[in-house]
Nucleic acid binder design. Sequence first.
RNA 1: GAGGUUGUAGCUCAGUUGGUUAGAGCACUGGUUUGUGGUGCCGGGGGUCGUGGGUUCGAGCCCCAUCAGCCUCCCCA
Length: 453
Amino acid sequence: MSKPSLARGTRDFAPAVMAKRNFILQTIRNVFRKFGFLPLETPAMENLSVLMGKYGDEGDQLLFKILNSGDFAKDIIQNDLEKGSKQILPKISEKGLRYDLTVPFARFVAMNRHDLAFPFKRSQIQPVWRADRPQKGRYREFYQCDADVVGTDSLLCEAEIILMLNEVFENLGIKNFQIKINNRKILSGIAEIIGANGRESELCVAIDKLDKIGREKVEEELLQHHFTSGNIEALQKLFDIPENPEACLSYLENWLNSSEIGSKGIAELEEVFELVSQFGLEKSNIQIDPTLARGLSYYTGAIFEVKALDVAIGSISGGGRYDNLTGIFGLPDVSGVGISLGVDRIFDVMEELSLFPAESLENTRILLVNFDSDSQKACLPILKSLRDNGIAAELFPEQAKMKKQFDYANKKGIPYVLILGSNEIKSGVYGLKNMESGTQENLTIQEIIKTLC
RNA sequence: GAGGUUGUAGCUCAGUUGGUUAGAGCACUGGUUUGUGGUGCCGGGGGUCGUGGGUUCGAGCCCCAUCAGCCUCCCCA
């Protein structure tokens, strides 16, 4: 017998946790559906030809590869062993676990281009796997929760995503959050203006850490990446940007007016902001943040990030616009914009702030005590009628001691117990015990159903 | 990939300068008028001290290796 253990970086979700996770996922699903994003699921495993080369060299290392079935080593020859794992891999593995939801989505769009209604809006909530080293808040199996719209570059989509994010967090009960928006074109413009044209991705990686490591460390990092002191001096204007959105936009216009791409980014951001306000959305928790960069290199337009303000945790959602999502699969010029919600982090935030509503617990509401064979028999029609009325009910499946049955109800957090022995069967009036208060009432079935509904 | 830290009961952890049969709390289980739990009282089961070597008369404790968890950096969600 071997000791039971979990595979590294994986978790069980016990029923009590699942109830809470389902509340989050269901809330998100409902909002996605309301905005016209319909669910898509793709397989856990994809051909390695789909996955490899999409996430950089490091990404390929982090892919979980699946060994071929049967005699997976049959094609290996001595020469392969000498050349090492790179030579052997394609001979022993042709499939891998998906690393994110974006690449499988791109594959799906490219494969089904003739059947889909464009612009195509999809939501996708599934686990992904990474052979990363686990640490706090990072797992080898975790859920991604994405919504994207592809096949249009309308800025209405950006505005709708902001609206949607707003609704998700409001419905979850997270009141104090901030949606930050920026535009990659503005960052490109900044790179241009400070004389570091074409180096915006390095610039982004550094700037993205601003609120984490501070201004001086960012400057240090830029120097290490061979930005000149002239570059950095020209960048100083970035640190004095006003917070007020209108003031911020005109400050940027002034700073970047000689950069075509920068001006375009400002115009886009302005339009998104304008659209959001036309939706009538209270703008207090939307902030323009020109230092928001996000590490991912494929963003080309708007960038979003959501932070929970009452909890010391990173962002709980992020996303942006990307061009040419499906180009690698032979379908060029498809622009899209999407958002990804961090379910695990949202869970932590809600747990810390005690935001899970009691009714989200999905629990059995009443346990019928099983005394003896007569009592068990009398319970069956009652059980059915409770369930027919939508009440989650269960009968203890054995004729056990009351203590044992009460302990069961307590442990499972079942709020009511129905006591039904020979006396009750005769009278047709049953003992409904409230497990929290300890009080007990004698009621008919109809009265019990009424109480529990 | 680099660094740090911790592995003792199902869980959280004590365990002295190395010295008899390794402890506690919680959990589990039985009893406490066999139709009333969660807060009482009494009892019980459960550990080759992560694994493999080494030092020693003697190792949970010291040394080496290895595996695993946790944390930081890189990167990411």
